[in-house]
């Protein structure tokens, strides 16, 4: 773990308190479909917490609860002790979510995508905003893309622009939704390195939702595994190297069994 409880502003180097996240008995239903079932865990300030699980296990829905985009059916999610769903919490705590798709504004250039937050919140004059934006682009090695539009970028570049846009927000809490999905192994490793180095540099609390085993084992302080809406594992990544739970082991190191294929078992 980072061993500090302060986030350092990447631009001013001023330190602000890092924030913790608490999820208490969280359940979420969409109609009759139970997506999250009594999930509880806490993320410490400055920690990198990686949430893993198969597709459809409820990871992204859980992430949306933390940023207040979804309301719990039961239970509570608190950021820095305050209800995650309230607008006051968004005003009090700077949270940035890097969406799986990037969610870049297609009608804006990369520069304007990054400048939107400081402009809307009047954090600096145009010269100051330019400095912030160009610095964030430089951190992510994206200096040449400022005038480009999202449609002109590759998948890896979009992810990095999304991270740069989050960085401009000077967040106390960074959330990543599948940051390495649809990327080649080298770009996946690069993104993992960026996430880890941003935590080291700026001590931001980080929650990553991912399928990526290498990312979890290499950069996480702690890992949670969500399966069918339930948290079935919570602990340091070292415990995942030789998992005791056969379900966890099968998820992390699935064997391709041509004699007894899984889809055939599902059919029966």
């Amino acid at each position: 773990m980072a061993g500090t409880s302060h986030t350092r502003n990447p631009f001013t180097q001023v330190e602000t308190p890092a924030v913790g996240v608490t999820v208490e008995h969280l359940s979420k239903n969409f109609g009759s479909l139970k997506v999250l079932k009594d999930v509880s865990f806490a993320v410490q300030p400055g920690e990198i917490f990686v949430l893993m699980g198969p597709s459809g296990s409820g990871k992204s829905v859980l992430l949306k609860h933390i940023v207040g985009l979804e309301l719990p059916t039961a239970g509570r999610v608190a950021v820095d002790g305050h209800d995650a769903a309230s607008e006051e919490t968004r005003e009090r705590v700077r949270m940035a979510l890097v969406f799986q798709s990037g969610a870049l504004f297609n009608s804006l250039s990369v520069y304007d995508n990054l400048a939107l937050y400081p402009r809307e919140h009047r954090l600096a004059d145009e010269a100051g905003i330019r400095q912030k934006v160009m610095h964030a682009l430089k951190i992510l090695s994206l200096e040449g893309t400022a005038k480009k539009f999202p449609a002109d970028l590759s998948g890896g570049m979009k992810k990095r622009v999304a991270i740069a846009r989050a960085l401009v927000m000077e967040p106390q809490l960074m959330l990543y939704d599948e940051p390495t999905s649809e990327l080649d192994p080298v770009m996946s490793a690069t993104i993992s390195e960026i996430i880890a180095s941003l935590r080291v540099e700026y001590r931001v609390t980080t929650i990553v939702v991912s399928h990526d085993r290498d990312l979890a084992l290499n950069i996480a302080d702690r890992v949670g595994i969500l399966m069918d809406g339930k948290l079935i594992f919570l602990g340091p990544p070292s415990e995942l190297k030789q998992p005791k739970d056969p379900i966890v082991a099968d998820f992390l190191t699935p064997k391709i069994d041509l004699q007894h294929p899984r889809f055939k078992q599902l059919e029966t």
């Binding site: 985009l69 607008e87 940035a96 979510l97 969610a103 870049l104 504004f105 809307e120």
Partner: peptide, 10 residues
């Protein structure tokens, strides 16, 4: 993109 605006408190 609308969700991104909400998370940016815009």
């Amino acid at each position: 993109e609308v969700d991104a605006l909400v998370t940016m408190n815009i």
